[in-house]
Design a protein around this nucleic acid. Structure first.
Lengths: 106, 106
DNA sequence: TACAATATGTCTTCTTTCAGACATATCTCA
DNA sequence: TGAGATATGTCTGAAAGAAGACATATTGTA
């Protein structure tokens, strides 16, 4: 029971706090959209539409949480994202809130 | 900056994972809708519409996460909610997922 | 006695979000 | 050379969610 609850909760977090998960993932290493999609799908066992992902990545860049540079390999262009200091602060704030949630200090 | 980020994240969690926050609150002590509303509003500094709260509480009871009994005091009726074992399991699963989030074991 | 607070509920309109299609181009392997 | 994978983007119709009104009754206080 608890295991299925956990899967459900993970899915809810991915759905509602996807941007933070992306920041966390890119924080481990710079990554481009397509790879992010595959990583999220294998890590969390969820489907991630590219039609949802790419606009979100662009929005995170516009907000200053991510910075991108285009890498060209042959004729193929990859938009590689790095996390910014602002992005790292957001992730730190998230982890801080989660700790309070667990300790019930809210 | 981090503080305003924290407020934003708390608001997002309340918005998207309100049911879990209600379970956590009722877990500390049995409570009725109106008191829950006031508690959430002071604890998290957010506004909680009663038009959103009452249907959610009823839904949580229908799912078996909460159980209610009506307490009559004079002519006034309070619907006091208790958390069920199933509800406790859901909260445990949530805390477990949060721990994994912090430790990046996801 | 009138107003604010306590107490619980529904319902409609508006807004936001979501799923999936539409669109294009390269690369690899059979 | 054709199919599947890589790679990134937009757009629209449908579904879900939110805000606020509508609804009713009691209690306490000025």
């Amino acid at each position: 029971m608890t295991e299925s609850f956990k899967k459900e909760i993970v899915q809810r977090i991915i759905k509602n706090l996807l941007d933070i998960q992306l920041l966390k993932l890119i924080q481990t290493q710079p990554m481009w959209g397509y790879k992010i999609k595959k990583q999220v799908e294998t890590n969390f066992e969820v489907k991630l539409r590219h039609g949802a992902l790419y606009p979100l990545l662009n929005a995170l860049e516009a907000k200053g949480f991510l910075a991108s540079q285009k890498q060209q390999q042959g004729g193929r262009i990859r938009k590689v994202y790095n996390i910014t200091n602002k992005g790292k602060e957001y992730v730190e704030a998230y982890d801080s809130v989660l700790k309070e949630q667990i300790q019930n200090k809210t």
